[in-house]
Write a protein that binds this DNA or RNA. Structure first.
Length: 424
RNA sequence: GGAGAAAUGGCAGAGUGGUCGAAUGCGGCGGUCUUGAAAACCGUUAUGCUGUAUCCACGGCAUCGGGGGUUCGAAUCCCUCUUUCUCCGCCA
């Protein structure tokens, strides 16, 4: 959510920046500005009336104390009409407030000045490519066949228990999953992240805090009996830790890492490209979240990108880093880098991580602020997050790229975790 | 799940209808004293919205768990929700 101050002060700047995201903001902004000015008018009138009211009430108090009953009664008569006016004003204010908010939340975040225009993935900028390329045998299989061959992930069993997109990890498959989670958490901890284990169901307030509600309501599983939501990513609970919080500048940046299962309804996105592990309703992910000082948030972003890169390098996966163009970036992001790993058997790049700086867009909604030493005023923090990493496609890539006649070779760094070197 | 009690500023804790944004203590910040520190003493110490000024500043409104109500006036009374504690029940 953009701040109303920015919208008031930099109308044209916002309009031109949002063009990079292919978003026409003019109409919305003008509506916002007009709602804002009527809102302020109503608020200031109400405040003046309320001030009158407070003054008279105090007078009544002292008149009664001094036994001047008639004068008190006269003053009381005066309040009735003021009270009526206040009521009218507040009836006007309600709808204006909600309209204003509803319009503001329609505006996407401004892209960072370095973001290039574009409409889709083809306009994304490849900033780096690396990783060893493995020679796969001619008889290579896609991961959905490999998991059956070695009986390590069972989709049919998941269908029996729950439904499509809820696989059961078995034997070495389960162990590989657990090993990756531990590996990612350990690497994050080494890099200075504080491990947290949050709830995986959240309330409505948290859903609003990170922006999943009200827009993406249909993408989350809703526990209707208690009105709770299954988290689509650890970003939701971990970032909401800092909702309605004023931090000390000295404590920034705050670096948290969390493993959680993630739940996504993925309504309407089932199809050819989402076979096997490529898209699931429940999957495991380790997420890194930073709360940063606005002056240093891009340093944090680079640091997070480097961290994620170190993970794919250690896993010996062929990867590339894409800087997203305006049209491909999410609504909330100011700058996003995507990590993709090469799937040898599917012959395509799989997105495994998305690392973003949201600047103050999320913080404004969360009301997460900080104060410098000696500062009187508070300022919004910058929030950042990234997957480090999402498991299913990493598993798919490991399986596909490391297959051989003998079986699937486990990357060296994982062996201490798995306790085996090969899946056969 | 049942019965009862409670929720106040960073923390502890007073405040049962009027001058209460809120005593007091602790903590924090600034200062005096000191070679420096401690102690002592003095001062200061919430957030949001809004207006004038837009550098410092000054004023108005709102906020005592959330929401609603009664009243000229609510931290204080009523309703409701949430949370915590105690007892009972159930149970990893």
């Amino acid at each position: 959510m953009l701040t109303i101050n920015l919208i008031r002060e930099k109308r044209n700047f916002i309009v031109s920046r949002l063009k990079i995201k292919n978003f026409e903001a003019e109409q919305i902004i003008d509506k916002i500005l007009s709602l804002d000015s009527s809102r302020r008018e109503i608020v200031s009138k109400t405040d003046m009336l309320q001030a009158d009211m407070n003054r008279i009430s105090k007078e009544i108090g002292s008149l009664i104390k001094n036994g001047r009953k008639e004068e008190a009664e006269a003053a009381r008569e005066k309040t009735y009409s003021i009270k009526e006016e206040i009521k009218l004003m507040s009836e006007k204010l309600g709808p204006v407030d909600t309209d204003l908010r509803n319009e503001i939340v329609k505006l996407p975040n401004l892209p960072h000045e370095s973001v290039l225009p574009g409409f889709g993935t083809e306009s994304n900028l490849k900033v780096k490519e690396g990783g060893i390329t493995t020679a796969v045998p001619d008889t290579f299989l896609p991961h959905w066949d490999l998991i059956k061959k070695y009986d390590i992930i069972d989709f049919d069993l998941g269908i029996k228990l729950t439904g499509a997109g809820f696989p059961v990890y078995k034997g070495k498959g389960a162990r590989l999953e657990r090993s990756l989670i531990s590996f990612f958490l350990d690497e994050g901890t080494k890099a200075g992240y504080n491990e947290v284990m949050p709830p995986i169901v959240v309330n409505e307030d948290s859903g609003f805090g990170t922006g999943q509600l009200p827009d993406k309501e249909g993408q989350m599983y809703n526990v209707t009996l208690d009105n709770l939501y299954l988290i689509p990513t650890a970003e939701v609970p971990v970032t909401n830790i800092y909702r309605d919080v004023i931090l000390n500048a000295d404590d920034l940046p705050i670096k948290n890492i969390a493993y959680t299962p993630c739940f996504r309804r993925e309504a309407g996105s089932w199809g050819a490209h989402v076979r096997g592990l490529n898209r699931l309703h429940q999957f495991d992910k380790v997420e890194i979240v930073q709360i940063a000082h606005p002056d240093h948030s891009y340093k944090s972003l680079e640091e997070m990108v480097d961290h994620v890169e170190s993970l794919v390098v250690k896993l010996e996966l062929p990867y590339r880093i894409m800087k997203l163009c305006g049209g491909d970036m999410s609504f909330t992001s100011a700058l996003t880098y995507d990590f993709e790993v090469w799937s040898a058997a599917q012959k395509r790049w799989l997105e495994v991580s998305s690392v973003s700086n949201f600047e103050s867009f999320q913080a404004n909604r969360l009301k997460c602020r900080f104060r410098g030493k000696g500062d009187k005023q508070t300022q919004l923090v910058h929030t950042l997050n990234g997957s480090a990493l999402a498991l299913p496609r990493i598993v798919a890539a490991i399986l596909e790229n490391n297959q051989s006649e003998a079986g699937i070779k486990i990357p060296k760094v994982l062996v201490p975790y798995t306790g085996f070197e090969i899946i056969n």
